[in-house]
Structures are given as C-alpha cells and as structure tokens.
Amino acid sequence: MAHCDDCEQMMQPYLDGMLSDEEVAEARAHLKACPWCERRFKFEEKLRHFVAVAVAATEPMSDALRIRLSELRSSQT
C-alpha cells in the first residue's frame, strides 16, 4: 500500500483522471485506510471549485465592453 507521501504525489493526477488503473487502485486503497489523506483530497477538489467560483464572481465583464464588442459586428443596423 502507498504511503502518505506517495499519495500526495498522486493527488493531482488522480483528480485529473490521469493515473493508470493500477495506480488508481493503489490510491483508493490508501485513501480508504487514511482519513488524513482523504481529507486533503476532498479539500483539493473543493479548492478547485472555490478558485473557479471566486474568479467568476470577481470583476465580471463591464457593460461598456459588452456594448463596444457588439458595435464591432459587421451586421450593425
């Protein structure tokens, strides 16, 4: 079974679906037995979502730019 250090190395590729079946099985076996690593994996998933939401909520496109973009259309009437 993998150690916590190995599990840490596998976290990103695991969450990205980039591990081989064998490596996935190894990671899952470790996570099942290790709540310490499991919390860190769950945190990573939530963090990625949190980052995307934080960025989406900050400084959305201005209406002025929206108008300027639509004025670039050739089909202006």
Binding site: R39, R40, K42, F43, K46, L47, F50, A57, T58
Partner: peptide, 10 residues
C-alpha cells in the same frame, strides 16, 4: 475539510 476551506476568501 469544509472548515479548512472556510479560512480562504475570494
């Protein structure tokens, strides 16, 4: 992990 992530702000 829910409480841990609450330490971060947008």
């Amino acid at each position: 992990e829910e409480r841990v992530i609450e330490r971060l702000s947008q």
